[in-house]
Simulated scan of single mutants.
Amino acid sequence: MQFGVFSVGDVTMDPTTGRTPSEGERIEAMTRIALKAEEVGLDVFATGEHHNPPFVPSAPTTHLAYIAARTQKLLLSTSTTLITTTDPVRIAEDYAFLQHLSQGRVDLMMGRGNTGPVYPWFGKDIRQGVPLAIENYHLLRRLWREEVVDWQGKFRTPLQGFTSTPRPLDGTPPFVWHGSIRSTEIAEQAAYYGDGFFHNNIFWNMEHTAQMVALYRRRFEHYRHGAADQAIVGLGGQVFMAPTEAEAKRAFRPYFDNAPVYGHGPSLEEFTRATPLTVGTPEMVIERTLGFADAVGDYQRQLFLIDHAGLPVETVLEQMEILGTEVVPVLRAEFERRRPAHVPSDPPTHGSLVAAGPDAPHHLVTPAQSASERAAARVGA
């Protein structure tokens, strides 16, 4: 199972000091967090994509390329790539380029974002958010899987004889997750293509998360990619840890109360009861996270948000040390102990996709076919 951290890249005042970091300081802090992730044995660092204050990560591939040059094993991902407002041609070329730079240590998560004004800034209509996500992603798949693309759709100018460059590393496109909190259409899209589904459940109760994951699993099986419990699932989470629960709450409460997203809303106690946010001891984080699999089934990727709401970078690095040394080793062992043999322990990686060969479903533009249909198509080719 993969464990890691993701950052939304907010520039937020530290409520305990009144100091707000500069944008440059925040970018440097995110870089230090990524490097720390590799140092403490985590698997993944993921960055968001935002184009509005108070967030800084407007160019994920630029940042991930810089991190790739300073790491050896860390998987580089996104916690949102805006498939609705970013040209699929730009995504195809940027992430294929990043594949080459990182020697395949990259995947990405498609999402629609959570900021309405972004749509008109990029010439799009938010009322077309879901159709944009569906059309743009299908074009992206073609750009990565077909050498020459002729295409005409609703939301961008036609393509005639177009070749995206560079081509994907080893002829193998990156693995894609589809991230959603509440859109059933996106869970359906992930299942249709046999891609991963990431439910970023940091604001929702586990009952809702379980319903969304269950829908994806049913549809994954419907499209004959495998049994429902073999579907590729990822979850988000939030943690803040200290030797005692009281100490953790005392330290984290000012940040929670003033956070740009949920500050001045529910109390810390209410929010921890209703969502996966865990503020307490490492043992509490372990118990809570293991409970996620009781709700949604065995899954393949767990990403934690720990660097938001104005927390000083040194505090975040301390949290990551605890996560990497006291929490994740126990979680790895426990998740694998309980996982059935037929359920994948990890999501696909560049290495595993290359090893599967060019005839694997991952290489098809539209892989939602039965094995017999795929075989018939190969015979008729």
Rank of each mutant, 00 (worst) to 15 (best):
T289Y: 02
Q230Y: 04
G236H: 00
V279N: 00
I286R: 03
G265K: 07
E247C: 14
D257K: 13
T281M: 07
V233L: 09
T275V: 12
T289N: 06
V279A: 04
I286A: 03
F240T: 05
E245L: 09
R224C: 09
T275L: 09
D294W: 11
F252T: 00
L290V: 10
A231C: 12
D257I: 15
Q230T: 13
M241F: 11
P260R: 08
E269W: 05
A274I: 08
Y255V: 09
S267L: 06
G297V: 01
S267C: 07
D257W: 11
G236C: 07
V239F: 12
A242D: 13
T289K: 00
V285M: 00
A259R: 07
A228C: 10
A228G: 11
F292K: 05
H225K: 06
R217H: 05
E270I: 10
L290D: 04
A231W: 01
A293H: 07
V296A: 07
A228I: 07
F292E: 03
E270V: 11
V296Y: 04
G237P: 05
R253E: 15
H264N: 15
N258Y: 15
G237V: 01
D298E: 13
E269I: 06
A228Q: 10
T281E: 02
Y223W: 15
G237F: 00
D229K: 08
G297A: 12
A227C: 11
G291M: 05
G237I: 03
L290E: 05
H264T: 11
S267V: 07
P282E: 02
A231D: 04
E221Y: 00
T281P: 01
D257T: 15
R253K: 15
G263A: 08
F271P: 01
A259K: 01
T275I: 08
T281L: 04
S267F: 03
T289L: 03
L277I: 10
R250K: 15
R253A: 15
R253F: 06
P254D: 14
V261F: 13
D298P: 09
L290S: 10
P266G: 10
Y223G: 05
P266T: 10
L277Q: 02
M284H: 04
V233I: 15
A295Y: 12
